[in-house]
């Protein structure tokens, strides 16, 4: 399977920077302008979150942006339409991220077809059990050239990490702590040991680390042990404070000590 994401990882496998945004936040039509400004600033790829009323595994910031997005009228169908319409103007890989229920209501077949049509490279559905994916949806995702990306946490056993690495593709999403997003201020020794362990497992997929990365220090830790960083809460916070998408990207990249283009 080859899509934009595979091409990216072939070209670059260290010091990757990926940003998470909530579709439909702050406004219903914000999604595409935010994607453009982040591409412009130099993000390697993006996770576009489709909102859900009950985001079990998310912290207060993503909960809030999700409920604002829903109030704005954002939904999965609308988002896929927006992305399909902007497809030609976006060249970095996009990953869709969200909870299972909106996907099931659309139907997994329709979802995969429309997701492929909108130029998206992969999907993260945290509450889809791996066995369910293996037995029911794996072939469908392959047919539509979509990666299914699984999460691992410090509580995931090595045996299970290997199972998820075999089953999924694209990359492994390493959650930096057993916690909901955006909680910790800096990484502890245990967290660093966990990232080191992941780096040493010689997994088939690259490892991207997310949750709690918000400054140069946390970014460097993650870059040291894994292929790259995924930043959500810190970006959404910057976006709430900033006057424009470009200003939000500049402010975040500044805090991370990464030169924006």
């Amino acid at each position: 399977m080859q899509n934009r994401l595979d091409e990216l990882f072939k070209r670059k496998d260290r010091q990757l920077l990926s940003i998470y945004l909530t579709a439909g936040f702050p406004r219903i039509d914000s999604t595409v302008p935010l994607i453009r400004s982040l591409e412009e600033a130099g993000a390697d790829f993006l996770e576009v979150g489709f909102p859900f009323s009950d985001p079990l595994a998310d912290g207060p910031v993503i909960q809030e942006t999700s409920s604002i997005a829903i109030r704005n009228g954002m939904n999965l169908r609308l988002l896929l339409g927006q992305l399909a319409g902007a497809r030609n103007g976006i060249s970095i890989p996009l990953i869709l991220m969200g909870y299972l229920n909106p996907v099931l209501q659309m139907g997994m077949g329709t979802f995969c077809r429309k997701t492929e049509e909108s130029g998206v490279s992969g999907v993260i559905i945290p509450d889809l059990p791996p066995e369910e994916y293996r037995d029911k949806y794996r072939e469908l995702f392959n047919r539509h050239k979509l990666h299914m990306i699984f999460l691992v946490t410090p509580g995931t056993t090595v045996e299970r990490i290997r199972m998820l690495d075999n089953l999924g593709s694209g990359f492994i999403y390493a959650v930096s702590a057993s916690s909901t997003t955006g909680r910790q201020e800096s990484f502890s020794r245990e967290q660093e040991q966990y990232l080191e362990k992941l780096g040493s497992l010689d997994l088939g997929n690259p490892v991207m680390t997310g949750f709690g990365i918000h400054n140069r220090n946390t970014l460097e830790t993650v870059w040291k042990h894994t292929s790259g960083a995924i930043i959500g809460t810190a970006y959404l916070k910057a976006l709430k404070e900033a006057g424009s998408p470009d200003e939000a990207a500049r402010s975040l990249f500044g805090r991370l000590g990464v030169a924006s283009r």
């Binding site: 595994a57 945290p126 691992v152 509580g155 995931t156 959650v175 909901t180």
Partner: peptide, 12 residues
Amino acid sequence: GGSWVPEMLYPN
């Protein structure tokens, strides 16, 4: 039924 939980909750 079943258990449809994110990995963060899986060990619990």
